[in-house]
Nucleic acid binder design. Structure first.
Lengths: 233, 233
DNA sequence: CGCATGTTTCGACACGCGTCGAAGCATTGG
DNA sequence: CCAATGCTTCGACGCGTGTCGAAACATGCG
């Protein structure tokens, strides 16, 4: 009686395999045109249009029209969080002796979670920052940047002073469902990820949300944060 | 393609108003008989039985047979977490100038979240414990109990040494969707809540998940944690 | 044993929604 | 201006599923 029907309505939007496929394709936070999403979901353009319209009306997606293309993206990080939380329910930590495809392994190892780095590598980076005392866990699911941390980021070429925090703070803790640990999100996490891309430390996989760490990337991670590739395999 | 259809399947189970009503009725972590859940959802016993069967098969519920009653409860805290996360999507912080019923207000003020204390009071208690230095926020969405904290709990009549942590630790951080802040969960949170019940500091509302703080309760909260009733209204 | 209560199963109905074919708009390019 | 491309709207089909009535099953009480 005192329950909001919102829950059912939101769940209903996610309750369709085609829609989940499209939402999953947008999990890295980037925007994609309708046609590509239709292909990702394995449905025709008409069907996809219908789905996208509903997700848009439901507030799960945002859209940007550019020429004759319409680019859809997740309405925000909360949507990504809901999807990751739902994914954590499944077969309840089933005994996954199952092979686990090569793609899935790469995804677990390193990927983009909305707009920041996740997977084992994302967690390792976050752990490294915590151990070096550059970051400390704070209340409200946030991280606090220490003086030493600000100095380190500056040395890496990121002027942390110019990054403005959102309403939710400068650095947030984001839960990773494959590893069940927190990793760095929020503006600070986004900027760090962008920096790693710009420096050629990591590269996007062409077809998926997976991310590859380059040899230079491993060198940087080892020298600055004490992360060894072998320790993550 | 590399997406698990689990997400859609789980979402589908939650995508029905009647099922959401039943799940919500179980959010306090207690078990309830099928008939009561049918009444809560406003459907007949047959319909409810069908829903409960599906939720059971989907791993969202657990059941315990006792005499001619069958008591259903949430399969675990993860289910409660999913529901709270989904609830946080809704109309995206709509301008709620809307009245907000008396029941809803009480629910926001203090309630049971699965098996521990939530709402403004739950958050205030957690904040108090943090400010006194009895608890500190730790990685992996946990709280760490300090020496001073252990002493305080002992003084309150809870031998913390006898509480055994689960796989996820002794004290966890649980996100509150009404206030968007963390509060104390996990074994430590459960024991504390039970203690407050046993000492007559808080009482369950007869019909809902809401909780009432007794005059004695306010006295205890004020003297031990510096929480004033007026500050929470 | 017979009756009442709580719960599940069976069957039938109807509504909703995902799907795609065909047509309609919008934009770009010759 | 016409053709091509990208996307959306319209219409129709079919399956799935939520709903309830009736009946079966299970348990507890005289």
């Amino acid at each position: 009686m005192t329950t909001q029907p919102n829950i059912a309505a939101v769940a209903f939007l996610i309750a369709d395999p085609a829609r989940v496929a499209m939402l999953s394709a947008l999990l890295d936070g980037r925007a994609r045109p309708a046609g590509e999403l239709a292909y990702s979901a394995g449905v025709t353009a008409q069907t996809a249009s219908s789905h996208l319209g509903k997700l848009l009306a439901g507030g799960l997606l945002a859209v940007e029209t550019e020429g004759r293309h319409r680019y859809y993206r997740l309405a925000g990080p909360h949507v990504a969080l809901v999807l990751e939380t739902l994914a954590s329910i499944g077969p309840a930590e089933s005994v996954r002796r199952k092979p686990l495809t090569r793609d899935a392994q790469k995804l677990r190892f390193a990927r983009c979670c909305y707009d920041h780095l996740a997977g084992r590598v994302g967690i390792a980076v976050t752990h490294g920052l915590l151990e070096k005392g550059f970051l400390i866990a704070a209340e409200r699911k946030r991280f606090e940047l220490t003086a030493a941390g600000a100095e380190w980021f500056d040395r890496m070429g990121m002027s942390t002073a110019s990054i403005k925090p959102t309403r939710y703070g400068l650095a947030r803790q984001c839960l990773d469902w494959t590893e069940r640990q927190h990793h760095l999100a929020g503006p600070l996490g986004v900027h760090l990820t962008n920096l790693l891309f710009a420096e050629g430390c990591i590269r996007r996989s062409p077809s998926s949300r997976a991310v590859d760490v380059t040899p230079k990337g491993w060198k940087v991670l080892r020298e600055h944060l004490g992360i060894h590739e072998q320790a993550l395999l």
